[in-house]
Each structure stands twice: as C-alpha cells, then as structure tokens.
Nucleic acid binder design. Structure first.
Lengths: 150, 150
DNA sequence: TATTGTTATACTCTATAACTATA
DNA sequence: TATAGTTATAGAGTATAACAATA
C-alpha cells in the first residue's frame, strides 16, 4: 500500500504491450499460420493436420490418446482432428488387441502420399522461417519454445 | 532428379517433428493460452481481449482498422473483438470528425478498471513464462519472435 | 474405479464476400 | 475508385460434460 507498491503498480501499468512475451508468441503463431495457409492452400491440409499425420507415421499404431498427448490436446479435440483425417481417407483406425479400449492409428496409402506433400510444404515453410532469423537463432528458438510448452 | 536430390528428399522425409520450428511455435502458443485461461478465468477476458484494451489505452482514439493492423487481424476479425468489448461495456466507439468513415475507440471507466486487472493477470502470467527460461532469454525470445511476425 | 473413445454442444479466433457510407 | 466499417457465413481449433465399453 506504500509508495514502493504504488511505484511498482504505476510502472507495470505504463508498460508497453511490445514488451509482453505472450503477445509476441500470439503474433508469431498467427504469422506462421497465415504464411502456411496462404502459400500451401493447394495442399488442402493445415499445419496441425500434417503434424498429426507426421506423428502417426513416426509412431505407427499410436493410440488416439497418445497422439493427443504429443500434440497437447484433450480427447475431444484429438477426436475432431482424427475423425477429419479419417474422413479424408488419410488415416485408418484399428481396435488394439492389447487393450480393447484403445484405437491404433495408421496412415493409409493416400495418407503416406499426403504426408510426403505435407513435409515438402513444411520444409519450404521452415526455410521461410529460417530466413527471418540470424544464423544459429533457429535452434535457439526451438530450444526456448520447447522449454515453454514442455 | 539425381542422387543428390534423392538424398535431400530422403533426409527431409525422415526428419522428426521435434525439429520443426512451426511445431514448437504452435505448442508454445497453446501452452500460453491454456495457462492464462486456467489461472485467470476469474478475469472474464482472454489475452487477446486484454491486448485490444491495452492498445486502445496506449493509443486513445485509435481507429478500428489501425487496432486491427497492430494485432494483425483483418477488418472482420477486428469487428468481432471490438463489438464484444463494447457489449461488455469496456469500449466506446465514436465517429471520427477528421474522416467520417473511421471510428475512434476509447476505454470506458469500466474498461480502464478491467484493463488494470488484465495487466495484473498478464504480469503474473509473464512471470510464469520467465520462470521457464534462463536469465536473459526472455528478451532474446521477444526479439526473435518479433522478427518472425514483423 | 479409472481409462479410452464418443457425441453433443459451445466458445474464440480467423477469414471471405458482399454491402453501405464516406473520401 | 479506394477505404472504413458492417453483416452474414463458415471453418479450424479448443474445451466441458455426459455416456458406453473396457480394464
């Protein structure tokens, strides 16, 4: 309640939005999404969808719940993404024999082809990202962002 | 089409999702949103909404289109956010006398109070972010992310 | 009891297209 | 003609709650 607290509050209230990390995370995310959507609309897939295909390819037979864990989404959200990819004919669901509650996910042939195109798109997109950074910063940035979401 | 190209493609296709910067930007954005939503639900405002209030406070009388520019959203999206804040009674719109096509935005008294609470929440939230980084990284991260979205 | 998947539902953010009014 | 705002509409992503099947 004293002068020190007043000063602290005053300082915080007069700060500029440009100094807020969360604000820059939000804008960067938007810029990344926009660049991908605008430049690779022919792909017919979002970055998120390519990520899901990528993980199913990296971990064949992964359970839906584990896919959700790796992409940090709850069961219902995972359901939305997986169902859409199944509708597109890119993903196949199979009841697990180990634990019959679980679904094992696999890519279809079309899914493998779509992932290949998706990875090419993401490769180009990553080049664009890299071009906006100084040498060595790319890896630094990955490391710091990972520490935030891990 | 030669061996060099094959090798390059093979390398790209066998890479792991964890090395993709866009992937980490997405996860970090999700983590930031989730932390804010879970810890400051009592505020009744999203980070995005607080950002909008903050900018109107920083630039009193800012036109809707300029607010949109600073938050990198198109006219329609800006409309959605501004209308909601007006509904909440936090924002006031006034026809500009300079250019009668434009709207000037101002905070209401309630808006000023809400922004104060919002800034306190964001201040705590930023502390959480900082705690996940090493000394000096916070500023580095802001700088790099800014270079991506600028 | 706990976990996995499922469905219904709702909310935020985003964008396109077509329209009105002002410049 | 171009710009600012507006409305209608749609889609992606996210989440909560309640339910069924399985462990």
């Amino acid at each position: 309640m004293g002068v020190a607290q007043d000063r602290k509050t005053a300082h915080r209230l007069t700060g500029t939005l440009g100094g807020i990390l969360g604000f820059h995370v939000r804008l960067a995310h938007g810029a990344v999404n926009r660049h991908f959507a605008e430049n690779f609309s022919g792909l017919g897939l979002t970055q998120k969808q390519v990520s899901a295909l990528w993980l199913v390819d990296e971990f064949p037979g992964i359970a839906q719940t584990d896919l959700g864990g790796r992409l940090q989404m709850d069961r219902a959200t995972t359901m939305t993404i997986a169902s859409r990819l199944e509708e597109y004919g890119l993903l196949r669901r199979e009841r697990s024999s180990d634990d019959r509650r679980k679904l094992s996910l696999f890519l279809t042939e079309e899914g493998v082809a779509a992932l290949k195109r998706g990875k090419d798109a993401i490769g180009e997109h990553e080049k664009w990202l890299k071009s906006r950074l100084k040498p060595g910063e790319f890896e630094k940035l990955v490391e710091m962002l990972a520490r935030i979401h891990e």
